[in-house]
Design a protein around this nucleic acid. Structure first.
Length: 711
DNA sequence: GACCTGCTGCGGCTTG
């Protein structure tokens, strides 16, 4: 019984909380964290008590009479820090240690207090740590040279991503500041690749995964309403949805900000006609922050009142909005991980179960939704793509180190970069090449053996934009009566006298001021959803493969409504004619004298790589939206010879990409920190991040194309 | 088809 190994004050906390027993992940984590010196990844479902599983043993074992911050909690979101600090402060009262939040919106006074007397626990974002390394490196030593534990919340968001590589580098730099090693505890409900998660600590050997695979019972319903137009949702779907949400607390996830607005405004209108409540909200990145916080507050504190929040992934993570009765997904989620996080927002109360409603408006979206749900049911979570050689973040961190040190010896910099575990797969010769290029480009200046920030580099490192790995989207601010409602993108839609939805309300645009990037609006009664533009969607190969498998199998799904069943039956009928015996090694191809269509079912990355390769052998190829992005259409006759000739490109991929970069120089803008690198590293980043050439060539080599129907 | 996340320093202002 690990409970007895906890310190007295922590046991008192548990007693006062009237917990009858510890959760499974807590039992295991307490035992392991207290009895070993390993790093741990705590993987268990949402609302299973992971935060306490980490903090209870850590607060039991750390000697807080020593000076310095000893426990550092790192979160990807400010909102999460603001929620967690309440729970953590309550816990820390029992051992009488201070808890400080440190992020861009945290108070100056709290920061000043902890700088005067560094002690206890700190909650921080990766960017705030980066900023401290760049502008106040003495504070890093002052605060963090006696760290015992680093806790990383929602660690799946960091694994393999740019932001995660930056955090890895920061952890590596923190290790340098500490004579004794600190331990790392990562928390997540959706880890798809445990080996990669272990590598995140920089000490794979000494990192263990504590996994609680148990799930909450979940009820699922599929609903199908065929789309009537490309722009608006079917009115019958909205009617059906309304009767579903009116007497519940619900979250609705429609995958795009425009749809979020459409749904919240239209549901509110339907509710008005039927005399229902008016608590229909919109929550996404372009809704003003105060409004979003109001919506979160409303959800958390509404005991009796029902509500319906239409939202994007802003409400996917652990921000505390309490529990909702039902989670509704409109058209398929693009990952299993995302679906799990969303479902986890319902049924959080003890004894209740998660309720999920999956609406679809096209056959392919229904199929993708079914595939995600089926993979989740089998306990599968897709791994995230990992950038193995992150040259761009390397360049960024080189600038960060030089700036923080106010100049550094050339050799010392290379030594620091090559011992940094975030860059362990990058060759030493590449460090030199990148630094030399930065010197040529005036990002770095060389004075003898000393490197300082160059003229052009100063502009970069002195901007607040330097601390993050992701780019800021530039929008227009929508203003009514001196209040900011939210943001609208630059588009033809944003013109005087146009009416648009924003923040679940309808507005008429009175004036657009492009200079100050402001749009002045007044309330209106009718309008349309705003059009936002976004990044490319990345659907993992496992989802496409599962879709194909479902199409070729005969298994029935009780969760489908009658319409969905008929749709699936129709799709299966078409594919049954294609003579595919093995969904793993065969794909259908359909062609006529003029056109052809190849079903890929191998994920977005391989599909777009194949499309690129086909265009490079002179074929006009496009990814087919009407097949759920699972097929490629070619405006030429198909021949096996042509298809196989793709393989001849295998040795020339770099040359092709160099040429593409020349033709389309704007492509490098995709990489916020990559655009300053020598061309060959940009080409490498394209290969690592945008495409999957190995996967594509492997597809051509191993997949047998079988002739299906004529087009 | 089209998610999300973060931020210093400084000048200049107001307020106690």
């Amino acid at each position: 019984m690990p409970y007895k190994f906890l310190s007295d004050p922590i046991r008192q906390y548990i007693y006062d909380k009237q917990w009858e027993q510890l959760r499974p992940i807590q039992e295991v984590a307490i035992g392991k964290i207290l009895s070993t010196n390993s790093n741990y990844i705590l993987a268990s479902r949402t609302a299973s008590g992971k935060t306490e599983a980490a903090f209870l043993p850590i607060l039991s074992t750390v000697d807080f009479s020593e000076s310095g911050i000893q426990v550092l909690y790192i979160s990807p979101l400010i909102a999460l820090i603001n929620d967690q600090i309440i729970r953590i402060e309550e816990l820390c009262k029992y051992i009488d240690i201070p808890v400080t939040k440190w992020h861009g919106e945290a108070s100056r006074s709290g920061k000043d207090r902890v700088l005067k007397e560094p002690r206890g626990v700190m909650l921080i974002t990766p960017e705030s740590l980066e900023a401290m390394f760049v502008t106040k490196p003495h504070n890093i030593t002052h605060l963090f040279s006696n760290l015992k534990f680093v806790i990383i919340d929602e660690i799946h968001l960091f694994i393999g991503t740019d932001r995660g590589i930056q955090l890895k580098s920061i952890l590596s730099r923190l290790r340098e500041e500490n004579k004794k090693t600190f331990r790392i505890i990562g928390l997540s409900a959706t880890i798809g690749d445990y080996e990669e998660a272990k590598r995140f600590t920089g000490d794979e050997e000494n990192t263990k995964v504590l996994l609680d695979k148990s799930t909450k019972p979940m009820t699922t319903v599929f609903r199908y309403f065929r789309e009537e137009s490309r722009i608006e949702l079917p009115s019958k779907l909205l009617e059906d949805l309304y009767w579903h949400v009116r007497d519940n607390k619900t979250l609705i996830f429609p995958n795009s900000r425009g749809r979020v607005e459409e749904i919240s405004v239209k549901l509110k209108n339907i509710s008005k006609k039927n005399g229902g409540h008016t608590n229909f909200f919109a929550h996404h990145s372009a809704v003003n922050k105060e409004e979003r916080e109001f919506v979160e507050f409303f959800a958390k504190n509404s005991k009796r009142q029902n509500f319906s929040i239409s939202c994007t992934s802003t409400l996917e993570l652990g921000i505390d909005i309490g529990s909702v009765d039902e989670v509704i997904q409109i058209d398929a989620s693009n990952s299993v991980s995302s679906l799990i996080q969303r479902v986890g927002r319902s049924g959080r109360r003890k004894g209740s179960c998660s309720k999920l409603v999956l609406y679809a408006t096209t056959p392919w979206s229904m199929l993708q939704s079914l595939a995600c749900w089926n993979l989740h049911r089998r306990g599968y979570i897709e791994p995230t793509d990992v950038t193995v050689r992150p040259y761009d973040i390397l360049g960024h961190q080189a600038l960060s180190i030089i700036k923080g040190w106010h100049g550094i010896d050339y050799k010392t910099l290379v030594q620091k970069l090559s011992s940094n575990f975030a860059f362990q797969n990058i060759q030493k010769t590449d460090f030199f090449e990148i630094i030399e290029h930065f010197i040529q480009e005036d990002l770095i200046e060389k004075l003898g053996n000393e490197l300082i920030i160059g003229v052009k580099g100063e502009k970069l490192v002195n901007s607040s934009d330097f601390y993050s790995t992701f780019a800021q989207e530039i929008n227009l601010q929508a203003i009514y009566n001196n209040n900011v409602i939210g943001e609208l993108p630059f588009s033809l839609q944003v013109q005087s006298n146009n009416n648009l939805f924003l923040a679940a309300k309808i507005w008429k645009i009175e004036e657009v001021d492009l200079k100050t990037r402001k749009v002045y609006v007044i309330p209106a009664n009718d309008g349309e959803k705003p059009i936002f533009s976004g990044a490319t969607v990345n659907v993992h190969s496992s989802i496409h493969r599962e879709m194909f498998t479902i199409l070729l199998s005969k298994g029935e799904f009780d969760v489908l409504d009658e319409n969905s069943k008929l749709i699936l039956e129709d799709m299966r009928k078409i594919f049954s004619k294609m003579d595919i015996k093995n969904p793993i090694s065969e794909r259908p191809v359909m062609f006529s004298k003029k056109n052809s269509k190849i079903y890929i079912f191998a994920g977005s990355k391989i599909t777009s790589t194949l499309r690129y390769l086909l265009s490079q052998i002179g074929l006009s190829a496009s990814i087919n939206e009407s097949d759920g992005y699972c097929s490629i259409k070619i405006n030429n006759a198909f021949s096996v010879e042509k298809w196989n000739s793709i393989l001849a490109l295998q040795e020339n991929v770099d040359t092709l990409l160099f040429r593409t970069l020349e033709e389309k120089p704007y492509l490098i803008d995709v990489f916020k920190w990559g655009k300053y690198l020598p061309k060959k590293y940009i080409v490498s980043l394209i290969k690592q991040k945008l495409y999957d050439f190995d996967g594509a060539f492997d597809f051509v080599k191993t997949i047998k194309l079988k002739k299906g129907d004529e087009l």
